[in-house]
Design a binder for these strands. Structure first.
Lengths: 224, 224
DNA sequence: CAATCCGTTCGACGGTCACCGAACCATCCA
DNA sequence: TGGATGGTTCGGTGACCGTCGAACGGATTG
């Protein structure tokens, strides 16, 4: 089996509306039964069964048996990222239906850490440079990452809380960084004056100093 | 046209071997003519023409007319990222049952530069010694790097193409060096007899001289 | 102008695959 | 032990699509 063959097999699986519906229905990480997925896919249970068999066979879905139900979910975060990538190319999502949302989508706090496009971009940057490694439900800081974060001035306070955890961003559908590390990053950005909280909203604004800082330190340009 | 419909249309385009070959042939950012792509896709010019029309129509490819040639290239970096994402899921084969696959993972050409374990090791070595600096989507050669490469005999030809670019290696999931510099390195290694192309394959073999050379010059030992 | 090469369009052929209903197996419940 | 429900398998049908060769338009070259 050649590389191209493997790639086309996977892509072909995404190329059918019923299967695409199944996969997107699972994008949020939940596990659903075959019947629920049949409803989501708008096809009969028998047809759905065939699709599910092929998807699990290709390791796009993982299945868990519970009594007479079978629960399906995405086999790995890589699958979700692939779906996002295809959607990104598939084009402009019919966008923000609701108002005031734009600021929230750009940058907001999620409890004590950063989310929205900024939060996701930060996670991307740290991952790309090998400073942190995010897996399905956990995260670690590498050696280079530790010194990088130390230089940046974001040293997480000690504590019992989980240190670094990916948190799926609902507006971006991709992970940002939560946990003590996420909190430390947000605090440091506030201290540097890179971002400012808005009154009565979780949205935060990026200052001109922040624009420069995020670009120089993390290679982030949200306008680009 | 719904989200799912757009997504499946794009995915279905990737689901055909001929089109997948075309897209991967353009992964490094070069622009190729329809005939060259027909060769890469292993189908007739007429068939290729149909595929190219569909790919450009879906905005996966951009086309540029020059005389009686038409040059095709990926329409945006997003397309490349999508391909990488699909390859990442399609994954390196779980079990390298087949000897040829193993050879491909050890060392192969990615059009005109080196990839696989050897390509990644080269990039690592050059980075470690401070000869090049690779960031997210760009790369630079340092002063010491310039003289080092000059001594080595790998002086990139002048040209419009990007000079040094990291290219995510699908089998190693780490960057190797593409662009004019990558091409120059590959050419020099061939000239030195360190590597040899295999017929009908992108795999390259490392000669005994190459083993010594890579070890002495770059500190690379792929068996280690 | 003639020869040539690049690329596209057209028509026909063949294989693949999504779909459904009905029958079947497994599990749970009364 | 029956009956109900979740899920799979099977056979048949129809549509879609990738493929090629042949013919054609456009651009370059001699």
């Amino acid at each position: 089996m050649s590389d191209i063959t493997r790639m086309t097999s996977v892509a072909a699986l995404l190329g059918d509306p019923a299967r695409a519906n199944i996969l997107t229905a699972l994008l949020d990480g939940r596990a659903l039964t075959a019947k629920e997925l049949a409803f989501a896919a708008h096809v009969s249970p028998s047809t759905t069964s065939g699709h599910l068999a092929r998807l699990t066979d290709a390791d796009l879905l993982a299945v868990e048996k519970q009594g007479r139900h079978r629960y399906f979910r995405l086999a790995s975060p890589l699958v979700g990222q692939m779906l996002e990538a295809v959607m990104a190319v598939a084009g402009p999502a019919p966008k923000p239906v609701w108002r005031g949302g734009e600021a929230l989508r750009t940058a907001r706090t999620c409890y004590d850490h950063l989310a929205g496009r900024l939060g996701v971009a930060l996670a991307d940057s740290l991952t790309r440079f090998g400073h942190v490694a995010l897996s399905g439900d956990g995260g670690e800081v590498t050696e280079t990452g530790r010194s990088f974060l130390c230089d940046f001035g974001a040293e997480p306070a000690p504590g019992k809380r989980v240190f670094c955890r990916p948190c799926l961003d609902w507006s971006e559908r991709r992970p940002h960084i939560a946990g003590r590390l996420g909190a430390a990053l947000a605090t440091r950005c506030l201290d540097l004056g890179w971002i400012q909280r808005q009154r009565d909203s979780r949205a935060v604004t990026i200052t001109p100093a922040g624009s420069r800082g995020f670009a120089e330190t993390f290679g982030i340009d949200l306008n680009g």
